[in-house]
Structures are given as structure tokens and as C-alpha cells.
Amino acid sequence: MNINATLLGQTIMFILFVWFCMRFVWPPIMQVLTARKQLIADGLAAGERGKHELELASRRAAEGMHEAKQKAADVIAQAEKRATQIIEEAKAHGKEEGDRLVSGAKAEMEQEVHRAKELLRQQVADLAIAGAEKILRREIDAKAHAELLTLIKSEL
């Protein structure tokens, strides 16, 4: 338990140990600790950002969904409207066509009637002429009275 040169040895050893620790032990460990702190901070920030983005995305998705529903409803309403319109148009068109057909048929009928009348008139005229001829065969020269006969024919 005497104070001797061990004292100097211990002091030198102490200084060397401190120097070694300061040079090779402390800085790398502190560096790692700082790096890990940064890593954790970054990770937390990234997590926070991810959460925020998820929130935004879900909100955007909800909006999109809403919009799509709206659009679909619009399309359906428009389609219904168009369908009614088409039906109306078809009805109108059909009626028109029917009217046209009816009036055509009427016109044709009238024409037919007219032609029949004309034919009948011709035949009556011919008959009358024939009758008149038979009656007047002797008295009337067909050639001489042709002008007269034609006049009568047109008046019939």
C-alpha cells in the first residue's frame, strides 16, 4: 500500500485508454446512434406521410365513386328520355304513314271510279250510238254527220 511508480504507470495507462476510447470507440458508436435516430425519424415521417396519402386516396376514391354514380344516373335518365322520344317519334311516323296510305288508297279508288265511269260513259255512248245507228242507219250518213256525232259523244 505504498505510493510508488505504479502511480505513473496508472496515469499513463489511463491517458492511453482515454485516447484509444476517444479515437476508436466513441465516434463510430455515436455515428451509428445518430444514423439510427435519423433512420427512425425518417421511418416515422414516411409512415405519417403514408397515412396522409391513404386518407387522401380514400377521399378521392369516395369522390370518384360518387361522381360515377351521378354520371350513371344521368345516363339512365337520358336513355329513358331518349326511349320515350323514339317511341313518340315512331308513333307519329306510323300515324303519318297510315294517313298517307289511306289517302293514296282513296285517290286510287277515286281514279278507279272515275275510270269506270269514263268507261261506262264510253260504253253508254257507244251503245247509244249503236242504237242510234241502228235507228238512223238509213237516214244518217256516218261520214256526213261525224262532226255532230263527236260533239254528242263529248257531251255525254
Binding site: 505510493i3 505504479t6 504507470g9 496508472q10 495507462m13 491517458i15
Partner: peptide
């Protein structure tokens, strides 16, 4: 005491 004084002198 050599050891403790060694350090404290440092």
C-alpha cells in the same frame, strides 16, 4: 491508492 491517484492525477 496508486490506481485511484493515477486516475485522479490524470
Amino acid at each position: 491508492p496508486n490506481a485511484t491517484f493515477g486516475m485522479s492525477i490524470g
